[in-house]
Amino acid sequence: MSGNTLHYHYVVPGDDFTRAGMASSAVKQVLKQLGLDPETVRKMAISLYEGEINMVIHASGGEIDVDIDDEKIVAVLTDHGPGIEDIELAMQEGWSTASEQVRGLGFGAGMGLPNMKKYSDYMNIESKPGSGTTVTVMVNIK
């Protein structure tokens, strides 16, 4: 794939939590097929999966764009949900606005954004309350 950039686009439906993670699974499959090392694949898969879950829980879905070149994988997750009021607070482990219902589904422990930061090599959040959130995560290819 020397010199080429691969681009993938996914729409994440917001109405069905049980199906959340399909886009992340698809990306993981692509990365595996490209022969990237398992640690790199796992880092990107977890970051995306947490982001995808967030989109479904908080923002009624959204879109994911993934670009892969020789050096890195970049994923941009865009939603038009309520936005994040205090990003610094949202980045703290354990802090969450998720409902009891979401906790009963195994998420909402306030680990989503911290996990994305932990597993990615670069992460940026842009958010405006009322108009949505864009999260960019990047993982370097070893």
Partner: peptide, 15 residues
Amino acid sequence: GLLNQQAIRTAAMMD
């Protein structure tokens, strides 16, 4: 004890 698809997807993400 979590009985939903996310239990499987989480396992899949972690290999």
